[in-house]
């Protein structure tokens, strides 16, 4: 069962990768990348157990954190990089 689940995760990662390549907008790519990141966390957790690694769960926990912070950071960058009219709106500066 563990192997089946790992194969399912790998297939989903592949599908998300296709979406990352075909886009069409940068937001779609980021969404797929975020989804890919969550799958990576699951893959590390399940794969680590299947191969009986040591302390794989710490890696998975850290990856979940980094994935979240990374998504937020890139999205903040997108949000304020391409919009010049938002710059003079004090409400969005927070």
């Amino acid at each position: 069962m563990l192997t089946a689940a790992i194969v399912a995760i790998l297939v989903t990662m592949f599908l998300a990768l296709i979406r990352t390549f075909i886009g069409p907008t940068e937001y779609d790519r980021m969404l797929a990348a975020n989804s890919f990141g969550t799958k990576t966390v699951l893959l590390i957790a399940l794969g680590g157990h299947a191969l009986s690694w040591n302390s794989f769960l710490d890696v998975a926990l850290l990856y979940a954190l980094v994935n979240f912070v990374g998504t937020i950071a890139v999205m903040r960058f997108f949000e304020y990089s391409n919009a010049s009219e938002e710059r003079d709106d004090p409400g969005t500066a927070a």
Partner: peptide
């Protein structure tokens, strides 16, 4: 902890993405 973290951060990340897309 991983389960709680994924469940707690997912809405925030999703909302950030949707908002950035609308801004774009």
């Amino acid at each position: 902890m991983i389960m709680i973290l994924v469940l707690a951060t997912n809405p925030t990340a999703t909302h950030a993405m949707a908002k950035a897309t609308l801004h774009g």
